[in-house]
């Protein structure tokens, strides 16, 4: 029914994790490769520690800016439970990159609910899952706040294999445009670590 010329990516996480910046850089890379790109994000109340998603669709011509259930070719989950929450958006046969990182939500903090155990096993049984320990990688680089850029690197790697044009994106130039000079170097390393992971 739908032309398969559009690829859909979801970046999901928790408000404050930096999914929006990562999505912005990823989208700019896709534009530089000559694609039509639409990206959608929600600001506002959900940012206060709520579940957040940014959605990217790219191809020769993109209409809707949002990704439907069963439509995402790639999901990059910045938090493990969010990967589970968004699983139904993954296209059967799609790829999921999951950060092995837990942020307990309010009902878990207060003891009303328990953080689900065995998420990675469950996801791996259902889909093509790559697990990344982005927090450890970022801490290893000396700046825990670069975790989102490690995940961005992994996302860039995942899209790069999709087409020749994407293999030639100058990610470094796009990073430089979006980073404060003082943090450029560590973010470059973070990106490279994610890309190579």
């Amino acid at each position: 029914m739908k032309k398969d010329s559009v690829t859909a990516i979801l970046l999901v996480g928790v408000g404050g994790q930096g999914t929006i910046l990562a999505s912005k850089i990823l989208s700019e890379g896709l534009v530089s490769a000559g694609f039509d790109v639409k990206m959608s994000e929600i600001h506002g109340m959900s940012q206060r520690g709520g579940s957040v998603s940014t959605q990217i669709r790219y191809g020769s011509k993109v209409n809707a800016p949002i990704v439907g259930r069963g439509e995402a070719d790639i999901i990059i989950a910045f938090e493990k439970m969010e990967a589970l929450r968004w699983l139904e958006y993954l296209k059967p046969g799609g790829k999921m990159i999951v950060n092995d990182f837990e942020i307990p939500s309010a009902p878990i903090l207060t003891g009303e609910a328990i953080y689900p155990e065995g998420i990675l096993e469950e996801l791996s049984a259902k889909a093509d899952v790559t697990v990344l320990r982005a927090a450890e990688i970022a801490e290893g680089l000396g700046n825990a706040r670069t975790m989102n850029i490690v995940l961005l690197g992994a996302a860039a790697k995942a899209v790069s294999s999709a087409s020749v044009a994407l293999g030639n994106v100058e990610w470094d130039a796009i990073l430089r445009k979006n980073m404060k000079p003082a943090f450029l170097d560590v973010n470059r390393k973070a990106f490279a670590a994610g890309f190579g992971a």
């Binding site: 259930r69 059967p92 939500s105 689900p116």
Partner: peptide
């Protein structure tokens, strides 16, 4: 009346409502 095929799990994510910082 059509829906896309989806991957589903019996495992449920705990809600994540916004909170005061």
């Amino acid at each position: 009346g059509e829906r896309a095929e989806t991957l589903n799990s019996d495992m449920k994510a705990v809600p994540r409502p916004p909170t005061l910082c």
